[in-house]
Design a protein around this nucleic acid. Structure first.
Lengths: 150, 150
DNA sequence: TCCATTTAGTTGTATTTGCAACAAAAAGTA
DNA sequence: TACTTTTTGTTGCAAATACAACTAAATGGA
């Protein structure tokens, strides 16, 4: 049975659920952690790229980012060469949360990969990267209104 | 870099997004397909188990199921031996949608696994099942209010 | 240069999602 | 048996999510 995608769905929902519950005590509401880590890792990234990276709707990212700014975790900075884009940069408070988020994530990874050898974990990562790459094109296309034939 | 979980998150969001867009023309609103397939595959399943299977909050499942019933895709049947539970069963209309959902899912699987050998696809599935199994305990525990230490 | 297209961002609106808090049946225990 | 706990289900609320539709800047041709 080719149940790879179902397994992926189950794992993703379970982990997201856990993270959301655990980050609530850091005043991070649902999903926020996703955006904050990426902005910390790639300061200056713009909203559009962020949405693409996370695989979430542009407008969802817009509102998540809005909220992060309101809560003082990031700022939107104007670009000197491009009046349209806004570069997202973590504040000190935002940066301070980064290691906490990473620690949680590392723990979940420990739990998730328990019992797998280093080789298996690496193999899993390699395969997942290929799957992600395979699916990215369709995501983009369908998002932009293209119809898939099957 | 142990990015397995991030990859899983990206893949899951991308695929869910695609499915939601594609199933809209079948009058299936967001997420509905997830529940309907499971009910079709395991008729008589109860809400609680369904939530556990899908890895979603009990109340979310409750409302999704409610909507499926309202839309005439499933019925809630009383159990003769247990007054509390309600067995979920697909209607004819619900059953008719099943192959359509599966076809989409198969196509996404084709796209996702493109370029992987049979051996690699099998290996991926095996590893994912182990990861899912590893994470299930934590999901259950955290959902029920238990704190993880890390 | 001018115009069409793409990119980036926003807001309105409808829907889903999930935590809290509750009720009641069932199961477990003394 | 009487009791406590667990299981299953619901509803109120607040929040996130995403489709539509819209601006405006940037880019890419003729």
């Amino acid at each position: 049975m080719r149940d790879q995608l179902r397994e992926i769905g189950m794992i993703a929902r379970a982990l997201d659920s856990i993270s959301n519950i655990e980050f609530k005590e850091l005043e991070l509401t649902k999903g926020q952690y996703l955006y904050l880590v990426r902005i910390c890792e790639e300061p200056g990234i713009i909203q559009e790229k962020l949405a693409e990276l996370i695989k979430v709707d542009r407008t969802t990212a817009a509102r998540a980012v809005q909220k992060l700014e309101t809560n003082g975790l990031i700022t939107k900075q104007d670009d000197p060469h491009n009046k349209k884009i806004k570069r997202l940069v973590p504040t000190e408070r935002g940066k301070a949360l980064y290691p906490v988020i990473i620690r949680e994530h590392e723990h979940s990874t420990d739990v998730a990969l328990a019992g797998l050898s280093d080789k298996e974990a690496e193999q899993l990562l390699r395969l997942l990267k290929r799957v992600r790459h395979n699916i990215e094109g369709d995501w983009d296309a369908v998002k932009k209104g293209k119809k898939r034939n099957y």
